[in-house]
Design a protein around this nucleic acid. Structure first.
Length: 422
RNA sequence: GGAGACGUCGCAUAGUCCGGUCGAGUGCACCACCCUGCUAAGGUGGAGUCCCCGUAAGGGGACCGCGGGUUCAAAUCCCGCCGUCUCCGCCA
């Protein structure tokens, strides 16, 4: 949720942000109005309540014989208080309902527009060239007996897969490598719940426009999370954190579930876009003043992973319209996928500033001793999808795949993945 | 799944039976000051969170797990939910 004070004092700033996102500016006017109505209603209620409180003290202290008369007077006042209370809470709900539909205020420099309006910040590494026709990741995965889509579909349906043998080991190796890097950087590992309550899902901003992306279990009123970010953000909900020793950082390890409802027939081949995968996610709670610097740090750790794995990639500054409601800025690191002859997103890191923490009520103490919302940031350190880029990038004509050096230690020293006769 | 107990201001607790004098006592921890020949003991005072009005000083409101209800008035009575614990059953 955006800062209500900012809304009141500088609605223009929020309108500009909405414009960059390609979203409604009328919503900002509506929110400002709802805020004013809400405050008026609260003032009316509170002065009536003050009157009632004072009256109530009189009743309590009055001698027995005077009580009956006072009570009948008080009854009339009580009815007005009740109505005013209802009006105030209705006005408050109305305000929350409107203000929640406004996306986080984008940071200066974020390009306006939609999916294709990103800025390329850098391109790193040489795009691999092959003296042969490269195989796509699924073909290689099947040669290596590492990926089994048919049986995934048989058991669970389209967009489900098995990782088998070296495929399973490869995923664990990637995740563990990421975890080791995270540990070295001071992150605390956290294996998180993947089913969460509605309040938590709501608080992280995932129940907005894209709620049809999320699996829901109505019998239990629980949501399956599409990223451990949800449980990592919820971890410190309703708490006041001590950030005096710097950011609090967690590395969340979890399975992720996505309905992929809007993706139509895209990426139906292989494991690029699946309903269930694993991910190691960085999550930081920081002083808002430090948020942009932390964002750069998260990006740097992601780039180190890609570089260690010998992948060619680029970094894009995602356009405002493609941010998602919680993010104020998002960088995607995209690896080159040879058979698609284009870059595909492997990681994403978002600066959510204080947007999530306001909903989840996560605060810290400022130097003045006051409480203030913290900033939250998240970023991918490894996921199942990376296997796609690794297999394709490091493949050889004979169907073997060279294991990137950084990964060998996690595969018992294995240097070459070789086709398996089945 | 069945039965029961519990959830209070950082922590530990009192208050709940018998509604108002309870936004709430006590201990520990905390902060400031005082005292004391020492990192002890003692004394005095202070301190929660959120919101509204106000430039401010200040004023007002809400908060006793969460949400409803009864009542002039709810930490206290009633209902629902969430959580914790104990016992039984079940599964392993």
């Amino acid at each position: 949720m955006i800062d209500p004070v900012l809304l009141r004092e500088n609605p223009q700033l929020i309108k500009r942000s909405q414009e960059l996102r390609g979203e409604s500016t009328a919503l900002v006017d509506a929110a400002v109005e709802a805020d004013a109505a809400r405050r008026t209603a609260i003032a009316v209620f509170e002065s009536l309540r003050a009157e009632q409180n004072a009256f109530s003290k009189q009743v309590a202290q009055a001698p027995k014989e005077a009580k009956a008369a006072l009570v009948s007077q008080a009854q009339e006042l009580a009815a007005r208080v009740k109505a005013a209370n209802q009006a105030a809470s209705d006005a408050d709900s109305e305000f929350i309902e409107v203000v929640q539909r406004i996306g986080n205020v984008v940071i200066d420099g974020v390009p306006g527009g939609g999916e294709d309006d990103y800025n390329v910040l850098k391109e790193v590494g040489d795009i691999p060239a092959f003296g042969f026709e490269p195989r796509d990741h699924l073909e290689i995965g099947e040669l290596l007996d590492a990926i089994d889509m048919q049986r995934g579909a048989k058991v669970s349906g389209a967009r489900f897969h098995y990782l088998k043998g070296i495929g399973a080991r490869l995923e664990l190796a990637l995740m563990t490598m990421g975890l080791d890097r995270a540990l070295a950087a001071g992150f605390t590992p956290l294996i998180t719940p993947t089913l969460v309550r509605p309040e938590i899902m709501q608080g992280t901003g995932f129940l907005g426009a894209h709620s049809d992306e999320i699996y829901y279990l109505p019998d239990d009123e629980l949501y399956l999370t599409g990223t451990s970010e949800v449980a990592l953000a919820g971890y410190h909900a309703d708490e006041i954190l001590d950030l005096s020793n710097g950011p609090i950082r967690y590395a969340g390890w979890s399975t992720c579930y996505r309905r992929e409802a809007g993706s139509g027939g895209k990426d139906t081949r292989g494991i690029i876009r699946v309903h269930q995968f694993n991910k190691l996610e960085m999550f930081s709670y920081v002083d808002p003043a430090d948020a942009e610097a932390e964002h750069e740090r998260l990006l740097a750790w992601q780039e180190e992973m890609l570089q260690s794995l010998g992948l060619a990639y680029r970094v894009i500054d995602t356009a405002a319209g493609d941010l998602g409601s919680s993010a104020a800025r998002k960088y995607d690191v995209e690896a080159w996928v040879p058979t698609q002859e284009r870059y595909r997103e492997l990681t994403s890191t978002s600066n959510c500033t204080t947007f999530q923490s306001r909903r989840l009520d996560i605060r810290h103490r400022t130097d003045g001793g006051k409480t203030a919302p913290v900033a939250t940031l998240n970023g991918t350190l490894a996921t199942t999808r990376w296997i796609v880029a690794i297999l394709e990038t490091h493949q050889q004509a004979d169907g073997t795949v060279v294991v990137p050096e950084a990964l060998r230690g996690y595969l018992g020293g294995l240097e070459l993945l070789e086709p398996v006769a089945r």
